[in-house]
Simulated scan of single mutants.
Amino acid sequence: MALFLVKRLAGMVATLVATSLAVFGSLYLAPGDPATFLMKGRPVTPETLAAIRAQYHLDDSFAVQYAKWIGNVLTGDFGRSVQFRQDVGGLVASRLPTTLWLVAYAALLILVVGLAVGALAALRRGAADRIVLIGTGMANATPAFVAAIGLISLFSVKLHWFPAFGNGSGFGGRISHLTLPAIALALTFAGLLARVTRSAMLEELAREHVEVARSRGVPGAAVVRRHVLRNSLGPISTVTGTIVAGLLVSTSIVETAFGLSGVGQLLVSSVTVKDFPVVQAVSLLVVFAFVAANLLVDLLQPLIDPRVKGAAR
């Protein structure tokens, strides 16, 4: 287990290092002079341009600039936002709670709906299974921005059940404002989890030990709980970790559509005005969350399914 953990941590560090190089290098891959981007195209005197280049060390080599930047990042200094004129770390931290609320709300919906619908399809073959397959297929094919437009049109404009824009204040207000964004964000992922749950449970239902348990008179609910659902948790947990990590990537579209002041909306606005320090910080944050979620799933897999631990040996 210790060797397994060391390998996973080494892979995580290698991924973060490669990503940091790509994120930092994006400033130089974009056409034009980085100093021009930092000034947002405004005309400046040669003296001002020289001061900007000195402030951001643009005359140093790529290796020297990367070393200085990654050293600052490791101490929590992500630079200063060109757009908002404040430290990037504080700016991201002020937007992070809204995104975490949205991701947690959407993840809860995905787990509850995905597991329930997937289990229903596996246990109730026939009309229910076909309806679930059609519904999850439609959910998987619906982009988040399309779901957002439909939800706003129906539940905000026509029915006036939920607000369409803003973060809300207090627990009740925040839940009310985040309900529609969470549904729009969770729709596709819930359909995916439902299909994975259905496939995993159907595979377990066909195993011999399940038939033996049924032939011995074990109640159906106990068979499903002890032998089917428990043994299906391996693939379900794997895709769940990927989904939770992928939610952070998808928040940008939903937060922009619903006017939420979260990290995703900050990323979109920063890309638009070429605010590279903010883009770099948010990109690193998303990659770190993705890698950390997958690492957590890898560590939990042997506890969920002991067969994984045996195979690793």
Rank of each mutant, 00 (worst) to 15 (best):
S261T: 14
V268R: 00
T75H: 12
L178M: 15
L187E: 00
P277I: 07
R53K: 15
P163E: 03
T238I: 10
V82A: 13
H160N: 05
K309E: 14
V44N: 02
A213F: 00
L100Y: 13
V224A: 11
G172Y: 11
G76N: 02
T36K: 10
D129L: 08
A213G: 02
G246F: 02
G150Q: 03
I253C: 08
N140P: 01
M1N: 05
G76A: 02
A54S: 13
L248T: 07
R214M: 08
D33E: 10
A292H: 10
T256K: 05
T240W: 06
Q265G: 01
M1A: 12
V223R: 00
L187H: 01
V92A: 10
A54Q: 13
L192S: 14
M12H: 08
Q86M: 12
R130A: 11
A144G: 05
P181T: 07
L178K: 08
I183A: 00
A141R: 09
R195N: 09
R130Y: 01
F145V: 12
I243N: 01
L109G: 06
V157P: 03
A139G: 00
L91S: 06
L284T: 00
V271I: 15
E255S: 02
A184L: 00
L27C: 09
L260F: 06
F84K: 12
R313E: 07
Y105A: 12
V146C: 08
T75N: 10
S270N: 10
V64L: 14
L299E: 10
T45C: 03
T238H: 03
A144C: 03
F165C: 08
D59C: 06
T98C: 11
R207Q: 15
N294V: 13
F290E: 01
